[in-house]
């Protein structure tokens, strides 16, 4: 079963800007899917069309088999949206915001109250239920939007940069929540600028750039395409000179660290054999850059160069 099926979706705004040039995308039910792309790539337009906030110029969208035009209400009832920007009434209480949303989805009062309590407790907001929303912190406001999106138990939860601007503690709590929701069977589509977030949470990924899907595959296959890893090695003793290591490229070094790129064809065993042979003692190592970030930049760069050519 496809949670989302997009076919030849195009959008040209009134000012003539074409945000989507015909994208095709499918997301399986139960998936945790990342939709990535640089600013202005068309992600928000695509999400806007899926959630009915933007009208498509052409193409079709179906959600769990329901066409967004022909079976609008059925399609909409499957979706929960956490938008990028705060969009609830700042004068309403936390309880009122979530409870009203349950009402818009036609949930009877008793069930709406139960679901609201459950979602607010999950988001650690139950104690704040009678607080006027404008008095909440930024992180709490984001959690209110997640509780609001989940109150009607959507089959497809769309999170548009949900962790933007929140501190690491809340971000980690949100990751846990998203994973829990996904394990319970909810399909999740996530857009984020934190590629580490996408890499650790999502199973499948699409990268959109300049209104086109430039990559669409599972995360494992995509990451396997990366043939060079970048590491930072913590040195036990300072180096006296730049070491020569076969097959590897020394990017930088100082008294405490050595930055190195290692092709997968060389591998870490061969690297450590060489380091041991040269009596270079290593205390620890870490990836210098996020792997997905590297791939993302490679894809966007190659696309930009292709267009320039």
């Amino acid at each position: 079963m496809k949670a989302l099926s997009i076919s030849n979706l195009k959008k040209t705004y009134k000012n003539g800007f074409t945000a989507l040039k015909g994208i095709d995308l499918e997301v399986e039910a139960g998936d945790f899917f990342a939709l990535l792309g640089p600013n202005g790539a068309g992600k928000s337009t695509a999400i806007g069309i899926i959630s009915s906030l933007v009208t498509a110029s052409s193409g079709s969208v179906s959600i769990f088999g329901h066409d967004l035009i022909k079976e609008r209400e059925l399609a909409k009832s499957c979706i929960g949206l956490v938008p990028q920007e705060i969009n609830f009434n700042q004068f309403d209480t936390v309880l009122g915001i979530v409870l009203n949303q349950a009402g818009y989805y036609g949930m009877p009062r008793k069930l709406a109250l139960e679901r609201t309590e459950y979602c607010l407790k999950q988001m650690d907001l139950w104690e704040k239920r009678n607080t006027v929303s404008r008095r909440l912190s930024g992180g709490m406001k984001r959690r209110v939007m997640i509780a609001r999106a989940m109150v009607h138990q959507p089959k497809l939860l769309i999170l548009d940069e949900p962790t933007a601007g929140v501190d690491i503690e809340i971000r980690r709590a949100m990751w846990q929540m998203m994973q829990d929701v996904n394990k319970q069977g909810t399909t999740i589509i996530l857009t984020t600028h934190y590629l580490e977030e996408a890499e650790s949470l999502c199973r499948n990924i699409a990268i959109i750039d300049q209104g086109l899907i430039v990559e669409n595959s599972d995360m494992t296959s995509l990451l396997a395409r990366l043939n060079v890893d970048h590491f930072v090695l913590d040195l036990a003793e300072p180096l006296t000179a730049k070491p020569e290591l076969d097959g590897c490229h020394i990017e930088d070094f100082n008294d405490k660290t050595l930055s190195i790129s290692v092709p997968k064809s060389v591998g870490l065993n061969a690297l450590f054999e060489q380091l041991t042979a040269k009596n270079i003692k290593i205390l620890s190592l870490k990836n210098r850059s996020n792997r997905l970030e590297q791939l993302f930049m490679d894809l966007i760069d190659s696309k930009t160069k292709g267009n320039a050519a």
Binding site: S51, N87, Q90
Partner: peptide, 11 residues
Amino acid sequence: QRNIEELIVAP
């Protein structure tokens, strides 16, 4: 305040 989006997204 853009909370009209709550109604547009809902069925």
